[in-house]
């Protein structure tokens, strides 16, 4: 989410800046929810007691208040830890290298089905990160989805998203 904020100096982003950004984001969320609660009603109704928005309104008021304090604390009275780095540049790189393929994997499920996407994801992940030989990567990549296929589709009868390959094989 916020990892891609521009670097101010050598560090990517300080803990303090992330703290402020997170608190502000939570505050914004709380305010959106509170507005919605006003819309659906947050008082006492004769027939239904406390209305639907009553409880979310209260918790979001508390959320907004707590986030305000968190933001002020980080902005005005930062602790020693908060001056530190939120994430190192190589660390951020590694995190992005997992998040991006994972997002691509989820995106692919919708098109080729969960089994084919999983096979590709596992094999590529193994080769790219573990420098594991192609044959072994392919074996695990094909074996695991196959085992999952039998477990879910055949034994436990839980249908998972399938793509053109499964359709060709009659599922």
């Amino acid at each position: 989410m916020h990892e891609h904020e521009p670097a101010s100096d050598a560090t990517v982003v300080s803990v303090r800046a992330m703290d402020i950004a997170t608190a502000l984001a939570l505050m914004a969320l709380a305010i959106i929810v509170m507005l919605e609660c006003v819309e659906i009603g947050f008082g006492w109704s004769e027939a239904e007691g406390p209305q639907a928005g009553f409880f979310p309104f209260i918790v979001c008021a508390a959320l907004a208040f707590a986030s305000l304090i968190n933001a002020l604390q980080a902005a005005l009275f930062p602790t020693e830890d908060q001056h530190g780095d939120f994430v190192s540049i190589p660390g951020l790189g590694r995190v992005a290298l997992v998040v991006a393929p994972l997002a691509a994997y989820i995106f692919a499920i919708g098109y080729v089905g969960i089994y084919v996407a999983s096979a590709l994801f596992i094999a590529i992940f193994m080769m790219a990160f573990g420098k594991i030989p192609l044959v072994k990567s392919l074996a695990v990549g094909v074996g695991v989805p196959l085992a999952l296929f039998f477990m879910f589709e055949r034994w436990f009868l839980v249908p998972l998203p399938k793509g053109p390959l499964e359709a060709m094989l009659g599922y």
Partner: peptide
């Protein structure tokens, strides 16, 4: 890790 991590991620997605 390079083997177990993608498998965990796949199982999580399922």
């Amino acid at each position: 890790f390079a083997i177990i991590a993608p498998v965990i991620l796949v199982v999580c997605a399922i």
